[in-house]
């Protein structure tokens, strides 16, 4: 059961580098940055070894943390969404997921959008809560979560459409 194949490792390295060198420096309208590196977690093969998957997500977050000097906020939010991913998959895809032979390329666009949105919103909320670390700034946290989530969702959908190799 080799769920960690060569393809995933390439994707891991490329996403971390692109996040560190490009997406951390976008600063749209002053301070809005997207975090599309979590595509690694979103598009990880479904029939995987769960412990390995959670560990890989932790490493992904930790690398992004080292690059952006943010302590452990990305690592914490990445393990969380990796842990709750099966529940969200079941909610978003229903029967298709239950049959265990699901491929993200063959799913419907609407389902995929819901699945992306839920995980991205949770990820960003945990990340900004831990980064600001002050409950009296809850408005600022929600505002940053909303704007960054919209940005990330658009980019994630675009990237996943662009790089999907759909068999026709």
């Amino acid at each position: 059961m080799t769920s960690l194949n060569f393809n995933s490792i390439i994707r891991f390295v490329v996403l971390v580098l692109v996040q560190a060198l490009l997406f951390n420096n976008i600063n749209f309208l002053g301070n809005i940055n997207p975090y599309p590196y979590i595509l690694f977690i979103l598009l990880f093969p479904v029939n995987n070894n769960r412990s390995l998957f959670i560990f890989m997500s932790f490493m992904l977050g930790l690398f992004v943390d080292i690059f952006s000097d943010s302590g452990g906020v990305h690592a914490a939010s990445c393990v969380t969404i990796a842990f709750i991913r099966p529940a969200v998959l079941k909610f978003a895809f229903g029967m298709v997921y239950e049959h265990q032979n699901m491929k993200f390329n063959n799913t419907e666009f609407g389902n995929r959008l819901i699945y992306f949105s839920i995980l991205i919103a949770i990820h960003h909320f945990i990340m900004f809560t831990m980064e600001i670390f002050n409950i009296s700034n809850i408005i600022l946290i929600l505002q940053k979560t909303l704007f960054s989530s919209i940005f990330t969702i658009i980019l994630c959908v675009l990237i996943s459409v662009l790089f999907s190799n759909k068999q026709r």
Binding site: V73, A76, T80
Partner: peptide, 20 residues
């Protein structure tokens, strides 16, 4: 799985608090 999640989440929480 849950224990691994709690362990890794604890580590990253500790790193976050330390960075603050």
């Amino acid at each position: 799985t849950s224990l691994l999640f709690l362990l890794l989440f604890g580590i990253s929480l500790a790193l976050t608090i330390q960075s603050h």
